[in-house]
């Protein structure tokens, strides 16, 4: 299972990097979102994939899943949500202001 997940994570990273290297802004944003998903999957995989109960030792649970990676991912997802939302708003504003979503055409803007 871990091997399969690793391959999946690798594929996601590849797609994300490919998209980030594109010229259109929207694809770049999608690429960064996909890379962040790949990273989240990596964290959960690195924590060990296993079935089990919540880690409540007082109730006599012996087989339990590691809760820490899940907490880490939750935090990371929230942060990435904020960044992606900000990037989308920024892209919208930039498209209105600069009149293009092609990164190549933004090269020769100078200070006013």
């Amino acid at each position: 299972m871990e091997t399969l997940m690793s391959i999946l994570i690798g594929v996601l990273f590849t797609i994300g990097v490919y998209l980030i290297l594109e010229r259109k802004l929207l694809r770049i944003i999608l690429g960064s979102a996909i890379i962040s998903h790949a990273t989240h999957l990596l964290i959960i995989t690195m924590g060990g994939l296993k079935k089990g109960d919540a880690p409540l030792l007082a109730l006599g649970k012996t087989s339990y899943a590691d809760p820490l990676p899940q907490a880490l991912i939750l935090t990371a997802i929230v942060i990435n949500f904020a960044i992606t939302a900000f990037l989308l708003v920024l892209a919208y504003r930039a498209h209105g202001e600069l009149g293009s979503d092609d990164m190549e055409s933004l090269k020769d803007i100078e200070h006013e």
Binding site: I35, M46, N80, L87
Partner: peptide, 28 residues
């Protein structure tokens, strides 16, 4: 929201988003 600010912010955010993900990979 001046033009140059918008352009530089786009680059800055994307590159920082990716490097933060690398940080998380190292943490994982």
């Amino acid at each position: 929201g001046t033009k140059i600010q918008l352009r530089e912010t786009i680059k800055y955010v994307v590159f920082n988003a990716v490097s933060s993900m690398l940080f998380l990979v190292a943490v994982a």
